[in-house]
Design a protein around this nucleic acid. Structure first.
Lengths: 136, 136
DNA sequence: CAGTATCCCTGTTGATACTG
DNA sequence: CAGTATCAACAGGGATACTG
């Protein structure tokens, strides 16, 4: 039930889907957050942003992830159609995982997460306002 | 321990802090994610982005959040110096919460989360590539 | 190789009642 | 008003061993 007694910031909350009183799974912010949330998720996405990889390759690149969690992440990403699975014939079996176009759509978000994280770390360390590439 | 055998995408992983093999609390992506993660967190941030508010005002705007969780969120945000608390004198007691400049730094991230969420929802509904208002 | 199946353990959330 | 205290319920994550 949307509020009508307050002005909404049009940049922050452009439409009604963001004007919720409780966490709604179909609020865009929740949708995006769900896509990248969960331990190891952003690391798996990072690896796949570099190109397709097999299950075993992912384990090599992320040696400390457990098989269970990796499988779980890949399955969830698959259900959300962010990642596509392809079984390669031959022996031994290989499976190739790649980002779908929808998955690629997460790239700007990951970049923004990184940027924001850097900014928070700078504030934290008490650095003076640092120069931002060609602005300010 | 950073990988050296693969090329890193400079936009996605601009420096060594993002080249981790495991989730590191001081990786910028994790820092930013931690700032907005947790149920109700983005909603509290949204409210404070509209301006300072008291504990009770926040409860009015988010009627279903429990007092415990709201207090918890405000404390965590406070520890991270994203939110500042100010006790107002008088009776009854009032406390005003407001974003710090560091907290304001989360705004572009929230905007990007919303934008990405909308995009994911569009992909999900199988809509054709929609026009993007002359942006990015 | 590419996963499942178990089991355990911890952190998170929520409801509710109470206090300075 | 602005929280804290308590307790119950649950989901997420990890270690390990096993299978097609």
């Amino acid at each position: 039930m949307p509020r009508t007694d307050t002005r909404w910031d049009a940049e922050l909350v452009p439409d009604a889907r963001g004007r919720t009183v409780r966490p709604e799974p179909d609020c865009p912010v929740e949708v995006a957050l769900a896509a990248v949330s969960g331990r190891w998720t952003t690391l798996v996405l990072r690896e796949l942003m570099h190109g397709p990889a097999s299950y075993g390759e992912l384990r090599e690149r992320l040696p400390e992830i457990s098989p269970k969690v990796l499988a779980e992440r890949l399955q969830t990403l698959g259900e959300r159609e962010l990642v596509a699975r392809e079984r390669l014939l031959g022996f031994p079996v290989r499976t190739s995982y790649r980002l779908t176009p929808t998955g690629e759509a997460l790239r700007p978000l990951l970049v923004e997460l990184y940027r924001t994280g850097v900014e928070l770390l700078e504030h934290r360390s008490g650095a003076a306002a640092p120069p931002r590439a060609g602005n300010r």
